[in-house]
């Protein structure tokens, strides 16, 4: 196990270096200039040169990269070109907010989706099952920003039950979490349904049914162990997806999260923020993958790593 872990971690190094170079190159080779963004239409050629010089953007590309990478090794992500704020604290704050949304969305998905899937499985083939299946697929097929705007219109503007936007008390979490969690909810419901169905097919369960017995505890345990692997897989995959979906959700609900920050930073060519942010996200996803692999081994003793 520890050898496996060491190998996985070692394999990360080239990936991370690759990610950092890709991010750096994509951004710097793209036309567009942060100095222009900062200056707007307010200054002339010389003014823009002054800004460029101030930001060190007039240095050769390789020099800029190694300077950045060198600082990176000391956990210094530099300063935003646009806001002049240190990048790392800003990223961590935004990332924390996105995590709140993503974790909330995941919890929502597990609770609602799980219950939903069980109901559908128990009433398999019934009208309810069909309706649930359709709703689940509709949920996956719903454009997230459309859903967000509709929820906002109904619950915030018309009914005035919750605030439309912003991050504050618990009420402000309701709409973004529900919006972000919907796709995952639909997926979880389908997995829960099929896992439970599989358990219900087991001979001993059928025997139990035939005997007129129901053993909720046995059922529950078997379903859980059966569903654990797919749920972990989906959880890990969905989590990455949630981080991405957060971009749209954060835009609609003006959530101070990482996704929106990165989109704005890409548009403004705020290199240090984009580079740092994508690295952070990449690291998280990679860590998540490793953790998933380890979890597999813990959950399912049949899986071994050489």
């Amino acid at each position: 196990m520890s050898r496996f872990l060491a190998r996985r971690l070692l394999a990360l190094v080239p990936v991370l270096v690759g990610v950092s170079i890709v991010v750096f190159l994509i951004l710097h080779l793209v036309p567009g200039d942060p100095a222009e963004v900062i200056a707007g239409t307010g200054t002339t050629g010389e003014g823009i040169e002054a800004i460029r010089h101030q930001l060190g953007l007039d240095r050769p590309l390789a020099e800029q990269y190694f300077k950045w990478a060198g600082r990176l090794l000391r956990a210094d992500l530099g300063r935003s070109l646009v806001t002049q704020q240190a990048v790392l604290p800003q990223l961590l704050y935004r990332f924390g907010n996105t995590l709140k949304l993503a974790v909330g969305g995941m919890a929502f998905a597990l609770l609602v989706g799980g219950a939903w899937g069980i109901v559908a499985a128990v009433h398999r083939g019934s009208m309810w099952d069909h309706i649930f299946t359709v709703i689940a697929l509709a949920g996956v097929s719903m454009p997230i920003f459309w859903l967000g705007l509709l929820l906002m219109l109904v619950f915030a503007v018309q009914l005035q039950l919750v605030p439309a936007t912003g991050m504050g008390g618990p009420a402000t979490f309701v709409l973004p979490v529900a919006t972000l969690g919907l796709n995952a909810t639909a997926l979880v419901s389908r997995i829960a349904r099929s896992s439970l169905l599989e358990v219900l097919q087991q001979p001993y369960v059928r025997t139990a049914w035939a005997k007129g017995l129901s053993q909720p505890r046995v059922l529950w345990r078997h379903m859980l162990s059966n569903a654990a692997i797919p749920i972990i897989t989906v959880g890990a995959l969905q989590f990455g997806y949630l981080l991405g979906g957060a971009v749209l959700t954060e835009t609609v609900f003006v959530w101070p999260g990482l996704g929106r920050l990165l989109v704005d930073a890409i548009m403004q060519r705020d290199y240090p923020v984009v580079q740092g942010g994508i690295l952070l996200v990449a690291l998280t996803l990679i860590a998540l993958n490793v953790a998933t692999d380890l979890l597999y081994a813990l959950v399912d003793p049949r899986i071994r790593y050489q």
Partner: peptide
């Protein structure tokens, strides 16, 4: 697969945004 890993390390939408930005 290492190359794929590099691409997989970006959430798809961010990767798409970066490509469009480029």
């Amino acid at each position: 697969m290492r190359a794929v890993d590099v691409l997989m390390a970006f959430p798809e939408i961010l990767l798409a945004i970066a490509v469009v930005a480029a």
